[in-house]
Every structure is written in C-alpha cells, then in structure tokens.
Design a protein around this nucleic acid. Sequence first.
DNA 1: CGCATGACAGTCG
DNA 2: GCGACTGCCATGC
Length: 107
Amino acid sequence: MRPFTKLVVEIIADIPKGKVMTYGQIAKIAGSPRAARQVVRILHTLTEKYQLPWQRVLNSKGCIGLPGQHGQLQRRMLEEEGIVFAENGSVHLIEYGYEPLHLMDEN
DNA sequence: CGCATGACAGTCG
DNA sequence: GCGACTGCCATGC
C-alpha cells in the first residue's frame, strides 16, 4: 500500500463521530491536493477491508456522492451521529467539517 | 504499455 | 449561483 493510501486510511479512520470530511480535504492532508479521485477509489477498495467510516466522507459540496438508496442510508447514519442536514440535503461543512490538525505541518 | 474510467475539485461562462 | 469543461492520479482492461 502506498504512503498516500495509508494516510488516507488513517485520516478517514480518525474522523470522529459527528464530524465529516471532504475528498479534497483528505487528499490534501494526505499529501496530494489533487488526489481526491484516489480518495474515492481508496474508499471503494478499502472501506470494507478496513471498515472505514465512509459515511463521514462527502464531496466538496457537502453532499452525499452516492445516488439512490446508498445515499439515503449514508444520510441516515450521519443523522444518527448527530449531524443535521441542510434543507438542500447537504451537510454544514463549516460546523461538521473535521480538520486533523495533528497532521498539518504548521499552518 | 496505452486507453478508459472514477462515490471529485476547481475554474470559467 | 449553477452548468459545463478540464485537471489529476491510480487502477482496470
């Protein structure tokens, strides 16, 4: 497994309950600001192997990426964690967005 | 090895 | 503010 992938797994696994992160955010922290796609792939590939909280990972719009039933399921799981959805079906990233500061260089 | 694809992001009109 | 286009990087065929 590449370092990037490993970091992504660590980061996602480190997302606390009631918080969410975006693909771009995770990718950036993992070391590749442009690797949001890889985060997506990693979710697909490893979410079942490592039991990652995929439901806490959203796109930059704060919306569920999956269409249909999976999205509904994800939304319900997030609500169970205490996350409140906006009227448009998005999550308030300003409030629920999680930033693992211990992984930041300085900033 | 080359082409196509993906649960995306950022910019432009 | 929304829709369309391009960029990115790794995996799959």
